[in-house]
Simulated scan of single mutants.
Amino acid sequence: MRAAPADPVVPGDPGDTTLCGEPTQGMDKLSYTPSGPGAPWFPPNNREWMCGDCDEALCSG
């Protein structure tokens, strides 16, 4: 599971590359909203598929 910044032209869509540099074209979009401040950015039941580089980029903010 990877994270991408929002597309500047189409809000709600991902930008062209993920935070770790992978192209988003062809990736499935997952709609998920964290439950609140401090909650993980990814669904907790998907931790095993989380990209460590994207997680680091988001958490270092």
Results as ranks from 00 to 15, higher is better:
50 M>S: 07
13 D>G: 04
19 L>W: 15
32 Y>L: 10
50 M>C: 14
32 Y>E: 08
53 D>G: 06
16 D>P: 15
28 D>H: 07
56 E>I: 03
47 R>G: 03
41 W>M: 09
57 A>V: 09
9 V>S: 11
57 A>R: 15
46 N>R: 12
27 M>E: 05
30 L>R: 15
48 E>V: 00
38 G>F: 11
42 F>S: 05
11 P>C: 08
43 P>D: 01
29 K>M: 15
49 W>F: 02
51 C>P: 12
53 D>L: 09
26 G>V: 10
38 G>S: 08
49 W>N: 01
36 G>T: 06
55 D>L: 11
13 D>W: 13
53 D>Y: 07
44 P>M: 06
19 L>M: 14
1 M>N: 01
24 T>A: 08
30 L>P: 04
38 G>P: 13
45 N>L: 03
54 C>N: 01
25 Q>Y: 05
48 E>Q: 02
2 R>D: 13
61 G>I: 04
9 V>I: 09
48 E>W: 02
52 G>K: 00
16 D>Q: 14
21 G>A: 08
7 D>G: 04
59 C>I: 02
32 Y>W: 14
1 M>E: 02
18 T>E: 05
28 D>C: 04
57 A>G: 03
13 D>M: 10
23 P>S: 06
18 T>H: 06
20 C>D: 13
2 R>N: 14
29 K>D: 09
39 A>D: 12
25 Q>P: 00
46 N>M: 12
6 A>L: 10
12 G>A: 04
60 S>M: 05
6 A>F: 09
2 R>L: 02
24 T>C: 11
40 P>G: 05
33 T>D: 14
37 P>E: 13
7 D>S: 14
57 A>H: 06
38 G>Y: 09
37 P>H: 06
49 W>K: 00
32 Y>F: 15
56 E>S: 12
3 A>F: 05
44 P>A: 05
54 C>E: 01
46 N>P: 01
2 R>A: 03
55 D>N: 10
14 P>Y: 00
53 D>I: 08
48 E>H: 02
18 T>K: 04
61 G>T: 11
27 M>N: 04
49 W>R: 00
33 T>G: 10
34 P>A: 08
2 R>M: 03
61 G>P: 01
27 M>G: 00
36 G>M: 12
27 M>A: 05
28 D>F: 04
40 P>F: 03
33 T>M: 15
59 C>G: 13
44 P>S: 07
19 L>A: 06
51 C>A: 09
59 C>A: 12
28 D>N: 12
52 G>Y: 02
10 V>M: 02
51 C>R: 08
60 S>T: 12
54 C>W: 00
56 E>V: 06
4 A>E: 11
4 A>F: 12
57 A>K: 12
34 P>H: 07
27 M>R: 14
18 T>L: 05
36 G>H: 13
31 S>C: 11
61 G>M: 07
6 A>I: 04
51 C>V: 15
55 D>G: 04
5 P>M: 07
14 P>H: 01
31 S>I: 09
16 D>H: 10
6 A>W: 12
2 R>C: 14
16 D>W: 05
11 P>V: 06
21 G>P: 12
10 V>Q: 05
31 S>F: 14
24 T>F: 10
54 C>Y: 03
45 N>V: 02
11 P>T: 07
50 M>H: 08
52 G>V: 00
46 N>S: 11
42 F>Y: 15
39 A>Q: 10
20 C>Y: 11
